[in-house]
Design a protein around this nucleic acid. Sequence first.
DNA 1: TTTAATTTGTTCGTATGTATG
DNA 2: TCATACATACGAACAAATTAA
Lengths: 281, 281
Amino acid sequence: MRGQARSHPQRIDDSGPKPGSATLEGHGDVSFRPIRPVRSYERIVEQIEEAIVEGRLRDGDFLPSEREMMSQFSVSRSTVREAMRVLESSGLVRSRPGNPNGAEVLGLSTVALRKTVDRLVMGRRVRLVDLIHFRMLMESSANMLAARLRTHEDLVAMETALEEMRAAMPRGYEAFSAADVRFHALVAQASGNALIQMFNEVVHDVVLGMIASKIAGSQEGTSTMELSLLHHADVLEAIRAKDAPRAGRIARENLFEYYGVLLPPEDRTAVRLLLDAQALG
Amino acid sequence: MRGQARSHPQRIDDSGPKPGSATLEGHGDVSFRPIRPVRSYERIVEQIEEAIVEGRLRDGDFLPSEREMMSQFSVSRSTVREAMRVLESSGLVRSRPGNPNGAEVLGLSTVALRKTVDRLVMGRRVRLVDLIHFRMLMESSANMLAARLRTHEDLVAMETALEEMRAAMPRGYEAFSAADVRFHALVAQASGNALIQMFNEVVHDVVLGMIASKIAGSQEGTSTMELSLLHHADVLEAIRAKDAPRAGRIARENLFEYYGVLLPPEDRTAVRLLLDAQALG
DNA sequence: TTTAATTTGTTCGTATGTATG
DNA sequence: TCATACATACGAACAAATTAA
């Protein structure tokens, strides 16, 4: 009395009418779309993902235990586990052995994004110059938007963050870097475009990973931090003055100054072209 | 003699020294990093992912069957399956029941990227105006780079693609759209930055999905295609003339013309600001 | 501090639907 | 048609880890 499979609700017909093509109208002129079999674990992923996206499950909440889910979804534990692995690989959830609370909900994150870009870099589809160029675009746009849209509160918060960077300097690069991230998050917040912020953050991380794996500890000197501090003060000044073009240009110049030396000469020349005015028409 | 677990190679010590922090030097000044237990399925994912990224497994290749992998990796079937689910959710692999070849390798793709951005849109972290603004940045950059770097061969290929768009018009929006995608791929190729291409493509898809779910068939008229054709001809002309600023501006204007009407008035005004010259400093 | 209960990680066995030759 | 190999799915068991009594 074991190993039996009582009911097999697999190969479900419903795959949900996705909009975007294939209208069907009347009897004579129908057009069908290919069916992709939907596995059980996918439907579990969908339900949990939806709950997280819609905010019914929030960061820090806990999922039921696997055994409870297996009765709630009326599937086997293996199926529940496959769903958990997928959710975990998307960074939506984290599970630890022995945790009586069940898996922890992490909310929306960029870990999947990072993995994808990392793969592209590893596979040599994307080079360092591409990443730096991209960051120049993102960061200068964020700065320009921030210069246009910043409120007084934004400004105060940025000043505080800059102070924190200054204060963190003697505590080493780690602390300094963390304060640096906070400053940029504030700029991005003031810019109002969450997408630019996320993509920039992801590519920033990937670049750090890339140069760290090449040149260990290349940017951890005190002079680097002091230089960075000056750059950030410049940016803040431009944003305060609502000088969008200057805020954008400073971002590009700073990135070039940081990372330009890591590029092969021909790429460096190419990126230098992007510094100047007519980078946009 | 069943249900027994002979060897449990779980909870492995090795988590691989990831560079980026925590130097350890001598006896007195060590600093350790937290250990994350590495599950068996993760190590399988790593191996297969690595093989794909490095090109040892290519698009169209097949993985061994689950039963064979289970003996190659010396793990159970469930563990292999969990790894397969993760690889499948990243779009690296696809498996079908009854396929005697085993799972098919799909190579690097952007499906994971798309899912992530889709989630952000669903969760209202990212709005339509953010997406359109982002596309303006990506597409104008791609056009400008293409205007600077295009070879004669690039130009010929783009002309051919434009002809194909014209020829596809009477065959309906689907065919036209496919030719449109090819044109943009050529521009992106000429620009030389694969990252910009991918991100733009992903966001493009997400936008289409967004407006399709709101306004069914909003852009499938013949006049829309004719307008699009004119825009593309303009772009090609600017690229041919190596007029980077103009190539960039045309991209932004076209996007505004297409999608501006879908934006709420205040967002529309904000995006209009980005059309003009000093979008970069 | 030790123990007991619960949970995840992993394995094995079995049954069923599906695709290929 | 039929046999074979495959993926999907279910169930039961044990080991290791965590938490709380």
